[in-house]
Design a protein around this nucleic acid. Structure first.
Lengths: 147, 147
DNA sequence: AATTTATATATGATTATTCATATAAATTTT
DNA sequence: AAAATTTATATGAATAATCATATATAAATT
């Protein structure tokens, strides 16, 4: 195979690695009738008192109007609730409900297992390096360096 | 902020880092009226004699019928051509055209610059680690380990 | 305090992507 | 070699995601 641009292109390599790692788990989610989007929203709401919608969009890497629509659906399903902010009536706080927590908890347990499994398949040095480098680069202040 | 699952979740960290790295370049592409999908298809065809459609889908991480549709559009725009395979008439070889090359070449040059810039903003050890670990993990045989 | 500007969310129209399946050609099995 | 199975691509319908913009509220300016 020709050695060309794409093989050494960092941004594409990131996409490839991300895809390789998550494919199996995303299939699992689909088998549980949960979309990646709903999954991402819920895991970003767990252990938080709520996020207003725009921040939720930023945290989930999703587009604002998309989050509006998906969270509306999720409200109907009872997974989250949207509460007008007392201090700023434009803002809508999105909170995970008990039902949402009950839905997501076993899936988070599975995600942890899956992550363990993936990491254990790598050479130990690679796994260690990967965790360390990602933890650093995923930090907000690093992203703020216009990474 | 609460320290919870999502902050340490490898698969999400990968998505975050990938997003942080590529956001700026994707905005640049959009300003040139090129979608991420078309970009991804073209960079996977450069320096290759052509790929049949299913392999192109795998290489680009895109869904097969989506690739069928997007490449049809790209044919109309003269960026690629689809040629029936001589040995297996079910297969369609997708090849980048001269026009496609002419379109993508300056963008690849920009991508290289952008990658340089991103890496130079990181602490040197991080940049080195990142390149090395991704190069390893993006290799097909690693992916084949059911990563 | 009225006006202007900025911010947060929602909405409708458009576009992108996926899903299920049809069609056609190759391969395998009988 | 006929039938059954598998593989490659395409198609139409359904769903997901984005874009432009409207609406409402808050903040800043005059």
């Amino acid at each position: 195979m020709a050695t060309n641009f794409v093989n050494d292109y960092l941004l594409f390599q990131l996409a490839v690695v991300s895809n390789n790692f998550s494919q199996e788990f995303h299939e699992f989610l689909r088998s549980k009738n949960m979309s990646k989007t709903v999954w991402r929203i819920l895991i970003n709401l767990v252990d938080r008192p709520g996020l207003y919608l725009t921040d939720l969009a930023k945290n989930t890497l999703l587009e604002q109007s998309h989050v509006t629509k998906v969270t509306d659906q999720m409200c109907k399903q009872g997974l989250v609730e949207k509460v007008a902010d007392a201090a700023d009536r434009r803002r809508v706080n999105v909170r995970i409900t008990k039902k949402g927590l009950k839905t997501i908890s076993p899936l988070i347990a599975e995600a942890k297992k899956h992550e363990e499994k993936k990491l254990s398949q790598l050479p130990p040095e690679d796994a260690k390096q990967l965790k360390s480098i990602l933890a650093t680069l995923a930090q907000p202040h690093i992203a703020g360096l216009s990474l």
